[in-house]
Design a protein around this nucleic acid. Sequence first.
DNA 1: GGAAAATGTGGGTAATTGTGGGAATTTGTG
DNA 2: CACAAATTCCCACAATTACCCACATTTTCC
Lengths: 154, 154
Amino acid sequence: MNGLIGEFSCKLDGKGRLSLPSKLRAQWPESALHTLVVNRGFEKCLVLYTKEDWLAEMEKLNAVDDFMSPEIRRFKRIFTNGANLMSIDSAQRILIPKKLLEYAGLGTDVVLSANGRKVEIWDEQLYNSELNVDSSELSQLAQHFHQQRKPLGE
Amino acid sequence: MNGLIGEFSCKLDGKGRLSLPSKLRAQWPESALHTLVVNRGFEKCLVLYTKEDWLAEMEKLNAVDDFMSPEIRRFKRIFTNGANLMSIDSAQRILIPKKLLEYAGLGTDVVLSANGRKVEIWDEQLYNSELNVDSSELSQLAQHFHQQRKPLGE
DNA sequence: GGAAAATGTGGGTAATTGTGGGAATTTGTG
DNA sequence: CACAAATTCCCACAATTACCCACATTTTCC
């Protein structure tokens, strides 16, 4: 599982286009660039995948049967419904759909932040406040993380 | 787990380039030098890793699924924030992104300080005041360290 | 100590990348 | 079919980064 690395500041132009930084592009195979997928994130941000990685996410979802419960069906519907296929233009940019721009509150200045095999897309201001923690909260988060880590084993 | 050793003073040039001391480079395999990673430290400094070590840290993070909880996602973001891939130029220098220079308040004179498998990068003045402790504080810190060591395990 | 090698430091130039916007093409809608 | 909106293609300029060379300083070795 080789993860992506990097945090990038970029600008959205008036048309909602986002140019992907070359250091990010370089981490994906050339072929992947023509079929990327963006979706809503759980927080007020968007998430970018290669199509391949997106399909892997879908596998996870589909591993749980629809018969299970209405909530399962609803979750799948909502999660899937924001997904958008997009391709890269000749200037290495993707065009982000209006609905998603609104959802994430994206202005001109945005931040791309690698996370595992995904890339989160944040409005810069929101991103900064998301990262603004004091040390006591940080240690709480760290504890939380350690607790969650154990049950999964390894 | 073989740790790095040393504390080095170096200079940043006008373009934000930092030349890595040969005694530090010698502690990493030749192959590692072409893909290093910096990110923000929890204090007002930067942290430098080999890509390999960075990815190992990431493995730990990615072992916990994003679906788990908002706290998990937040923790991951905070931990990885500012990450940047960088390569070394023909004069054995790395180019430190402007944002990170600002974050750590780096001026011309900086200090590299080895810490485990990471290297911290400090502005020289900040570093000196950070290290300006008297012995009673040192002993308090040691106590705190000892107490925290048990619960977290590992 | 002195010569030779390696290292640290600085800067100029060329190539790449990021950014913006006009014009043409496509799409959807009445 | 006509029109407005959205998308793609194209070019141009600015900013950033990579590459190269020069020289001062430090280290190494005889």
